[in-house]
């Protein structure tokens, strides 16, 4: 195996495009090293992106935040401006593993690993995040919900990597939240997860919403019907019931050791309901 630690994105892309055989980007390594250890992945080349300084930074401008692909979950939690603007996204990243894992794990890695249960992905999708992709032909921006094709599969082409996750500037009276269900309080993989982002008008009526579900289909879903259940309402009980029903209807889960289809279908609605209440209260400035 070869290990490279390029200093620029350009060099990383060059190495990636020119490499033969199994080549893997190394961000936090909390998925990749586990896969290597268990023999599921035997890369011939590893490209460590943590020496590329712009990829280690959280940048903010009028358009929003750019979270470099090598930024860890802990660094996100420590960035007060980011945590204030997008608490749902930051909290979802802070659910990943333990303190030790959070010190290394990135949300770009969480996305590229393409697990249906990846915690930060529904939160990013709800927030309207985009992935900034860099490849031999230049840059492109793709909505986060379009990155994964199925478990372990992304749309990234040969030579392409994720440079950053872009979060929009938060519109006024907007709140986001992410909740997951696990059988204990820490260190487990989501049985189901729900990310919600809502924008309200001055009277508290919902003008825009995005609802995303995790671990209930082969990829994280953006559920338009569930969002429609909120728009035009004050996110009252009736709207929340309609939201929960739409989420359960959209769920296409599997049975596994973590949960049954029935349980996952039900809990997807429950989590969406609870996350919507938090997102609404955040939009109202209550919490």
């Amino acid at each position: 195996m070869q290990y490279h630690a390029p200093a620029t994105v350009k060099d990383a892309v060059k190495l990636l495009a020119g490499s033969k055989g199994n080549t893997q980007i190394l961000a936090g390594g909390t998925d990749l090293l586990v896969r290597m250890r268990s023999g599921f992945s035997e890369p011939e080349t590893i490209i460590d992106i943590k020496r590329i300084s712009p990829m280690c930074k959280i940048a903010r401008d009028g358009k929003g935040f750019s979270i470099g692909a090598a930024v860890s979950s802990s660094e996100m939690s420590e960035n007060a401006a980011l945590a204030k603007a997008w608490p749902g996204v930051v909290e979802s990243a802070a659910l990943i593993g333990s303190t030790q894992i959070q010190g290394r794990a990135t949300i770009a890695g969480n996305l590229c690993n393409a697990s249906p249960a990846a915690d930060s992905v529904p939160a990013m999708v709800a927030a309207g995040a985009k992935a900034l992709i860099r490849g031999p032909k230049g840059k492109r921006k793709v909505a986060v919900e379009k990155i994964c094709k199925g478990p372990g599969k992304t749309i990234l082409k040969k030579g392409e990597l994720l440079e950053a996750i872009l979060l929009p500037a938060k519109p006024a009276r907007t709140g986001d939240a992410y909740l997951r269900f696990i059988p204990r309080t820490e260190m487990d993989i989501a049985v189901a997860g729900a990310g919600i982002c809502v924008t309200l008008d001055a009277k508290g009526v919902c003008t825009a919403a995005r609802v995303s579900l995790g671990a209930i289909a082969p990829t994280v879903l953006l559920v338009d019907k569930a969002a429609k259940a909120l728009v035009g309402t004050r996110i009252d009980d009736a709207a929340l019931d309609a939201l929960a029903a739409a989420c359960s209807a959209a769920a296409r889960p599997i049975n596994d050791k973590r949960g049954t289809k029935e349980f996952r279908t039900h809990i997807a609605g429950v989590l969406a309901r609870r996350a919507a209440i938090i997102a609404r209260d955040r939009a109202l400035g209550k919490v």
Binding site: Y3, A5, L26, G28, G29, T30, L33, V34, R37, I46, D48, K50, S72, S74, S98, T99, Q100, I101, G103, R104
Partner: peptide, 21 residues
């Protein structure tokens, strides 16, 4: 967590980090 070390001030698992890093 039995392999915990601190790298540049941050707690990490040394089993999930390459020596080269």
């Amino acid at each position: 967590g039995a392999c915990s070390v601190i790298v540049d001030g941050r707690l990490v698992c040394s089993c999930l980090m390459l020596g080269a890093e």
